[in-house]
């Protein structure tokens, strides 16, 4: 096949690809997120939380390794 045809086909392919990506970008919420509040739900009831027990007594003895 002549090279110019190949070039045209390649150009068409990447052109379509680029248009598709642009469309996806417009459709996705990504740009909207720039204007959204930064607050996110950090802790939810369903997440497991590690809370040190306040009545536990830490060991302060020296000489222990590891």
């Amino acid at each position: 096949m002549p090279e110019t045809t190949k070039t045209l086909q390649r150009r068409k392919f990447f052109g379509k690809l680029g248009k598709g990506l642009t469309g996806l970008l417009l459709l996705s919420a990504f740009p909207v997120k720039f204007f959204q509040s930064e607050k996110k739900e950090i802790a939810s009831e369903k997440k497991i939380r590690i809370i040190e027990h306040p009545l536990a007594v830490k060991r302060n003895k020296k000489g222990l390794r590891g």
Binding site: I48, R49, I50, I51, E52, H53, L55, A56, V57
Partner: peptide, 9 residues
């Protein structure tokens, strides 16, 4: 025996 964390569940 002492608890080192609050119950996870």
């Amino acid at each position: 025996r002492q608890p080192v964390i609050y119950p996870l569940y």
